[in-house]
Design a binder for these strands. Structure first.
Lengths: 140, 140
DNA sequence: CCTACATCCTCTAGCGACTAGAGGTGCAAG
DNA sequence: CTTGCACCTCTAGTCGCTAGAGGATGTAGG
């Protein structure tokens, strides 16, 4: 039940102070009450919200998606179809990113391996960059 | 040997017109000659440079790294050690990203699978977001 | 009570790598 | 000659913060 300063909230949630203020500014977090000296003072329940946001950001959800997820959390009677859809979209995105990063990895490995550590005119790194056709997988 | 308009250069290189102008603005691309009517007119050799940049961007190299790589390409007598270092750093970065995306993927899969498609109060997506402890891998 | 110092406040500007749009000019075809 | 697209410059917006200026507040020690 104890009120908490923004610094304390930052320490406990792992979200930095300016970021908390930023979240308030964009309406992701509702404005807390203030002390006599106009300093923000948070309820313990605000920490849950902050942790939720932080976790979602770590999982790569965009602010807008988090906004929706928070609204869903606030109204537990709603169907969870939209939460499901958001998570699925994120999953598809992550899978796509993994695929393309794996392709990049193969390309970069080829580059680095092929580098004879000599002069630039024999360097495979530069060569491949200059000529897309020299890529292992020409798809990107 | 034919001079080319910016639109044509964009079409042939796959780099958008405003992006080409942007690259010129930040000094990644040198300013081309101009037509009588003050329109940019590119040499075919500029297309190579544009292709190089595009390819490097696709591989995720940052503008500053590309700047260095272009300088190396321009002076083929230099040692390719820096090109090698840049590519290796990029490779390590990519590998790191793949690792963390794989962790995310596992997390998201758990969320989506656990979703009973009912109401929000039984939704695992929301639940996991709210409670980090419910993650499969609690490392992130 | 005074001072020192950390923490807080608001506000603006900056990051990277573009992208969008306003408002105007050039150029080629019909 | 007019239509209409492509070009020009310039500014501002995107996303998710982060940094810094300049000032107020809160707290602990002397």
């Amino acid at each position: 039940m104890k009120k908490i300063t923004i610094g304390e909230a930052a320490r406990q949630s792992g979200v930095k102070v300016p970021t908390i203020r930023y979240y308030e500014g964009i309406g992701l977090l509702s404005a807390p009450s203030r002390s006599e000296g106009n300093q923000r003072s948070y309820e313990p329940s605000d920490l849950n919200r902050l942790a939720f946001i932080r976790h979602a950001r770590e999982l790569g959800f965009e602010i807008d998606a988090i906004r929706t997820l928070l609204q869903l959390q606030d109204d537990p009677h709603q169907s969870c179809a939209s939460a499901d859809a958001i998570a699925k979209a994120r999953l598809i995105d992550v899978e796509q990113r993994i695929r393309s990063l794996n392709a990049l990895k193969a390309e970069l490995e080829q580059m680095v391996e092929g580098c004879g550590h000599g002069r630039v005119d024999q360097c495979r790194v530069i060569e491949v960059l200059a000529d897309h056709g020299k890529c292992v997988h020409p798809h990107h």
